[in-house]
Design a protein around this nucleic acid. Sequence first.
DNA 1: TCTTTTACGAAATATGTTTTCAATTTGTGT
DNA 2: ACACAAATTGAAAACATATTTCGTAAAAGA
Lengths: 172, 172
Amino acid sequence: MIDASGKNAVDPKVIKEKEVAFAQFIQDRGLKTTKQRNTIISVFFAMRGHISVEELLVEVKRANPKIGYATVYRTLHLLVESELVQERRFGDGLARYEGHSGVEHHNHMICLECGNISEFSNPSLVKFQGQLAEENNFKIYRHRLELYGACKDEKACQLRKKKKAAHAHGGG
Amino acid sequence: MIDASGKNAVDPKVIKEKEVAFAQFIQDRGLKTTKQRNTIISVFFAMRGHISVEELLVEVKRANPKIGYATVYRTLHLLVESELVQERRFGDGLARYEGHSGVEHHNHMICLECGNISEFSNPSLVKFQGQLAEENNFKIYRHRLELYGACKDEKACQLRKKKKAAHAHGGG
DNA sequence: TCTTTTACGAAATATGTTTTCAATTTGTGT
DNA sequence: ACACAAATTGAAAACATATTTCGTAAAAGA
């Protein structure tokens, strides 16, 4: 959801940066700039969090109802190839896309109550994984650490849960 | 693949144990014992590793060609519910099932070259994750750590790769 | 502008999994 | 052993997510 209140909106400068970087990628690849792609990536980078194709499509259609989901899929693949965006799968069967990762290789905590996905990263953990790999005669290309559980702050959690439910009913 | 050479075969006692445990689960749930289910779980527990539905189905059909994949799926779900088996997904789009985990909550290293999946577990890592959760005000129910990369022993890796390719062509 | 290449949208297809449904099998009471 | 209700099966259809196809449209370069 694009935050219309401006409260939690993504800094327009950041969005611009990403747009420029993607334009560069498109050019380097000898691909073409199109209105649809521009729309999709602008909408995408204006969103926060771990966005499913479905969620993105809804917002994209708000901007231009004629854009189909094939184009959204195709553009997301390009975003992943450009390394501006990472694809994630948290086991609910859908791919999610993340374009505003603060830290390069971070991990996730997924609250099974309210659905909140938060990121963390820890240098010791990275070192630790390196050791483990060493011990096991393994060369790490990438890793994936996910902690599934619940927010300890139950109030905040319940609040998010309600918000999410309201959102699911189209309460916007 | 069921190891016919006996070299790396699962101890029949272990298989028996699992069969008994599953029978118990079936009874506790008020479900019925069937030949198909017995066949499927026997075949499954005679196999090692992280088994896909496809792989299991091939072996099951060897024992009884009339068993369909719906039944295999259904039985796997029961096995997961009984907690005798865990479902895993390593990002290649298929669910894999693991019935002989030595350690309760272990992690995985996935070689992207030869496809080998090995397990490891480390008490310090568990402690570490607990700390991380504490810092982030989070209660862990379960976790998932996967290291994707390559075997450092390239010879062994290449060997496994070839073996796998041969197997894929029906070389058995 | 003309031409070539690339991208688009809608629909078809692919893939992995789940569900439906009529027929069969199992467990239980007699 | 027999009948009955409930559960299970296999084949096919449905499902959900993702990808590909194909005719049309749009973009970049000559």
